[in-house]
Design a protein around this nucleic acid. Structure first.
Lengths: 111, 111
DNA sequence: CTTTTATTTGGCAATATGACCAAATAACCA
DNA sequence: TGGTTATTTGGTCATATTGCCAAATAAAAG
């Protein structure tokens, strides 16, 4: 595999990795409903404020969210709206997994 | 956050995590062109055969690929075709990131 | 039956990730 | 100014990930 191919893969991986955590997935879904500050997200999530802040930094560095300061607060919002299509596909995989499990169960029953 | 919400997040995270690695991303893209055996993928990737095999197991456990034995070989193929839409979104984020960088560069020049 | 080929599994070491706490920063208020 | 609030940053520790090697497995070939 050549260097360019690898670099392209790594660039895309960075974005996918940013979404590959339950807390960050939750944040993206909440932000899809509208802008929120760190303390609001922290209340929903229940983890330490610093942990939530670090998760937001990861999403920001990946280019998925952007922030806006107002007073002492930082408000975060989605920067790229297509993220939801992304999730549609994940749902499709989940449904497909369920279907397969059902088939396996049915096959076992018929034996 | 309640237990159900968390479980749903974790289920989706498992799928996203499976895609969050350059080698696995490469595998998915190659398999999109058609079925391949482990040794063919190994030649492209250059890593140890056991490493490639483990990456394939991760994709399989996430429900993204499926395998088929033929002789001594295992052939892998995509189980869910929508994976490419998924990548379209990642590309959109990348393009958006590039656009932002250009804006920053332009702003700096004008100062 | 032994050897070869393709793959998977187990184990280990290096590195990355993710949680918390404590401290630093920054804006606002009294 | 000094204190409060919101956020970020640095440090540390536990755990997860990822690579390789060696060994186990399994089918095919000689």
């Amino acid at each position: 595999m050549d260097k360019n191919t690898w670099n392209a893969l790594e660039a895309r991986t960075k974005i996918i990795k940013a979404l590959a955590h339950p807390v960050r997935l939750f944040i993206v879904e909440e932000l899809n409903k509208g802008e929120l500050c760190v303390c609001e997200l922290q209340k929903f999530i229940g983890y330490d404020m610093s942990t939530v802040s670090k998760h937001l930094t990861i999403l920001k560095n990946a280019g998925i969210v952007m922030d806006r300061k107002e007073g002492t607060s930082s408000y975060y919002q989605l920067r790229v709206p297509c993220i939801l299509n992304f999730f549609n596909c994940v749902e499709e995989v989940l449904e497909s997994n369920l279907k397969l499990n059902n088939e396996i169960i049915m096959t076992c029953r018929n034996k």
